[in-house]
Design a protein around this nucleic acid. Structure first.
Length: 560
DNA sequence: ATTATGCATGTATCCCAGAG
DNA sequence: CTCTGGGATACATGCATAAT
């Protein structure tokens, strides 16, 4: 009934696919080579004509510069070939990223092909329809019959063929159809990338996903039997669920930051006393911490149900580890950074605020240059809107990892403007910057001892500034106001003091991940089957990110 | 103002015939 | 036998327009 069933059979029979694959590639190669030769020939003829015209005419003496120009043009044949490949790859990538419908991509690829660009083209060469060209039927509808009705299929076949991953594994999964009112479950075929088949290789690769992955060493295969066949039922351990505070509220019914009965899932802090619970020594917080029974009671008190995962003996509220990115980079770190920048702003020359902002931005750029900061770690822009928001706490509008790499520069910025020998308030601001910078530097170096020290000072210094700002001027409460995330920062530092490196549980990937998957799974038509949608998404992703068979290669190298 | 409908466009999948 | 490409049909979705 479901065509996915047929796919399962086809996919299972890897031997049935092997033979034709080479043949089919050959099929694609032959017309390509033929065309390549034709193009080369045409180019040679063209250049011969040009050359004979310029050089063969003795009357006109060539200037050396012109000679050079002619030579450069000759070289550009290679350049053109390369450019053609780039264009072809880029166009195919547009399809892989699901940015254009298949028919548009097909049209573009064919146009590129006609323009003489050489690349491995997923669209067949011979064709009936001509994009953009009106058939002789009539001028009234020039687009009539111009589109390739099978473009989606051609590109789909291309996706299936052109990836280096193992074939997808299909299994029947009971699912609920949201469109049907009845609550009965249907079994649907769903595709999978089996973790044991690709994770070992994946963790041997470096660059593209490094930023989002746990630190090396924190991931390992649980002891036990490694699956030998695709279908062997394996045992797995759920090691980590990644979430932000919002998720914790939604799925684990963690309290929100302003709940009267308690605003922290790790201890008994309440809105009226969380400030004391933040600056106090670690052992005091420890005394007030919630154990699992107390947390379950706390849930019942707030008339919430415990997540079924809490049945597991090891799952409890203290396994919900707060992560560095959400708490520091997108919370306290960014907050401190932007307020320090705001304090610095009046110290820059310039008649107008905008001018001073651009001066400050220049200064940051210089620091980036001095320290040879990689481009992708730098803040992309800094405008007045980022720093000053009328009647609002300013917010730094940057990516989390940009904030992470801006914070270590704060001390330099403050020192350059002489905050460390200014007024009492300025000195206090300098201290926040100093400890913030130090904290981030220690984090990068993995120096946990110093990280905890600097972190504690950062938190207490910030809170002290808040107290000062509140007592000094009622209207200025907006600045240096602390947020409940400082409390969570303290909890992170408690974990650091116990030897937990924040890098092991941080969570840089999930912010962009959901958006990426949404874009990849956008569908433009066709019969809807959950398995089909999932397969399309996986295929696009697999074609876009090449799979490198490191583990197999290493084994081959070691065995003989 | 909201909802139903037609139309255009796009995808999924089947069938078929030809090539190797 | 499998792959390939043409064609047909069913299904999805967005948009403009008509109906309520």
């Amino acid at each position: 009934m479901w065509s996915s069933g047929y796919l399962l059979i086809a996919k299972k029979c890897a031997w049935a696919l092997g033979g034709q694959r080479e043949g089919s590639e050959l099929n694609m190669c032959i017309p390509l080579c033929f065309q390549l030769k034709c193009n080369m020939l045409a180019l040679c003829v063209f250049w011969f004509l040009l050359w004979s015209h310029v050089v063969g005419a003795p009357k006109k003496q060539l200037e050396p510069a012109e000679r050079l120009w002619v030579q450069l043009q000759k070289d550009s044949k290679e350049t053109k070939k390369k450019a053609g490949k780039t264009v072809g790859n880029r166009l195919t990538k547009l399809y892989k990223e699901n940015k254009l419908p298949a028919s548009d991509v097909s049209e573009l690829l064919q146009a590129a092909d006609e323009a003489g660009l050489e690349f491995s083209n997923p669209i067949p060469k011979k064709r009936k329809f001509e994009p953009g060209k009106a058939p002789e039927l009539g001028e009234a509808e020039p687009e009539e019959g111009c589109r390739d009705k099978n473009a989606a299929r051609s590109l789909d076949r291309f996706l299936r063929k052109n990836h280096t991953w193992k074939d997808l594994y299909w299994a029947k999964i009971p699912m609920k159809n949201p469109k049907k009112k009845a609550n009965d479950m249907e079994e649907k075929w769903m595709p999978f990338l089996l973790p044991h088949e690709w994770l070992p290789d994946y963790f041997l690769q470096s660059s593209p996903w490094q930023e989002g992955m746990p630190e090396e060493g924190s991931f390992c295969w649980p002891a036990g039997k490694f699956p030998r066949a695709r279908h062997e039922p394996g045992k797995a351990a759920l090691a980590q669920i990644r979430s932000d505070w919002d998720w914790n509220c939604k799925y684990f019914h963690a309290p929100q930051w302003n709940e009267q009965k308690g605003m922290c899932w790790l201890c008994k802090a309440k809105p009226e006393n969380w400030r004391e619970m933040t600056t106090c020594p670690a052992w005091e917080r420890q005394e007030q911490s919630l154990d699992k029974a107390e947390y379950l009671h706390f849930l019942a008190d707030r008339e919430k149900e415990a997540n079924p995962l809490f049945i597991l003996p090891s799952a409890s509220n203290d396994t919900m580890v707060p992560d560095w990115m959400h708490v520091l980079d997108e919370g306290t770190g960014a907050l401190a950074a932007v307020q320090i920048l705001k304090e610095l702003l009046p110290l820059y020359p310039g008649a107008h605020v905008d001018e001073r902002v651009s001066q400050l931005w220049e200064h940051i750029q210089i620091l980036y240059e001095e320290q040879h900061w990689p481009q992708d770690k730098r803040l992309k822009k800094l405008t007045l809107k980022d720093i000053v928001k009328p009647k609002k706490v300013p917010e730094l509008d940057g990516k989390a990892h940009e904030v992470r790499h801006l914070c270590p520069l704060l001390e330099c910025l403050c020192k350059a403007k002489g905050l460390h020998e200014g007024s009492v308030h300025q000195k206090a601001v300098y201290k926040v910057a100093k400890y913030c910078s130090k904290m981030y530097k220690c984090l990068e170096e993995g120096n946990l001892l110093e990280l905890e020290k600097a972190g504690r000072k950062f938190v207490s210094q910030y809170m002290a500034l808040e107290a000062e700002a509140t007592s000094a001027d009622e209207s200025e409460v907006k600045l240096w106001r602390s947020k409940p995330k400082f409390h969570v920062t303290s909890h992170i530092l408690d974990l650091v003091s116990l030897g937990h490196n924040p890098k092991h549980s941080w969570n840089y990937r999930d912010e962009t991940f959901a958006g990426c998957m949404q874009k990849l799974s956008f569908r433009r038509g066709g019969k809807f089957e959950p398995g089909m949608a999932a397969e399309k998404l996986l295929l696009r992703w697999m074609a876009d990110i090449p799979f490198l068979h490191f583990a197999a290669a290493i084994q081959l190298f070691q065995e003989p």
